[in-house]
């Protein structure tokens, strides 16, 4: 099939044709075997792409589910937590109706406010670097977020540190869902290999990415886990966030 005809078919697929062109292409598909076969090829290819996209999308959610399960496992080792959680929920409710200060806090607490309060760009410490810093690292150090994310995309293989940095670059680019996938990959890799490399960082910034996209039910369990781990790198930062605020977030989600 000629390039021009193929372009007409893809234009038809993408809904870019004028009505007269569309009608002519549809007629060719009906009446011409070559057009019909090529149209079938195009449809099949697009179906393959959509299937592959959906498979990857569900795979990313599967990883999120795995991460949540890991959080639940930690929670189940501290049975008193559920009692405390309920007490805090009651406290949050009392605060909610007690007075204007509480009302103000209730009104002012939302995923965006918590994100703004907690989020700080990740700076790459010198102890993490190496003499021959990679292109990804170099771009990240220079604050060239797009270049850092693209360099990792082109790289095409997994590496914990660079995967995390690519995720951070995407956070800076406000590509929060892509960033969440990177952090989830770091956590999944660590879990599979019993490693902790960049685990704390990935957990904290995964929670941040969930807050940025308003996915409170995913963010709050992670924040509570970080808060409960005294040796977690981000424990002190998350401890600035009160449990009442976290419960208000959850309460508002209902």
């Amino acid at each position: 099939m000629s390039q021009i005809n193929f372009k007409l078919l893809t234009g038809h697929l993408d809904g870019e044709l004028q009505p007269a062109e569309r009608e002519a292409v549809e007629r060719q598909i009906r009446e011409n075997d070559e057009w019909n076969e090529e149209w079938s090829n195009i449809q099949r290819s697009v179906e393959a792409i959509r299937h592959s996209g959906l498979y990857g999308h569900v795979g990313a959610i599967r990883k999120q589910y795995d991460a949540l399960q890991a959080v639940d496992n930690v929670a189940s080792r501290t049975p008193v937590r559920s009692i405390v959680r309920n007490l805090y929920r009651i406290a949050a409710f009392v605060l909610l109706i007690a007075g204007s200060a509480s009302v103000y806090q209730y009104m002012a607490t939302n995923p965006a406010s918590i994100y703004n309060q907690q989020y700080a760009a990740y700076s790459l410490g010198s102890n993490r670097g190496s003499a021959d810093a990679s292109a990804i690292e170099e771009a990240y150090r220079n604050g060239d977020w797009k270049k850092a994310a693209e360099a990792y995309g082109r790289w095409g293989k997994y590496d914990t540190k660079h995967c995390f940095l690519a995720g951070m670059a995407q956070m800076e680019l406000k590509q929060y869902k892509d960033a969440a996938i990177k952090f989830t990959q770091v956590l999944a890799y660590n879990r599979e290999h019993s490693d902790n490399y960049f685990r704390d960082e990935a957990e904290f910034y995964l929670a941040m990415s969930y807050l940025a996209t308003g996915e409170v039910s995913l963010a709050v369990p992670l924040l509570k886990k970080i808060r409960a781990e005294s040796n977690h790198l981000f424990q002190q930062r998350v401890a600035r966030l009160s449990v009442v605020e976290m419960n208000i977030l959850e309460f508002k989600e209902r």
């Binding site: 697009v46 179906e47 393959a48 792409i49 959509r50 299937h51 592959s52 996209g53 959906l54 498979y55 990857g56 999308h57 995309g153 082109r154 095409g156």
Partner: peptide
């Protein structure tokens, strides 16, 4: 069939894979 679809896509490699997913899936 779908498993084979995915293998076909993998054969494309980056960046084609990403471009087609961004347009036709996203």
């Amino acid at each position: 069939t779908k498993q084979e679809f995915r293998r076909m896509l993998e054969k494309l490699g980056e960046p084609c894979n990403k471009i087609l997913l961004l347009f036709y899936y996203e």
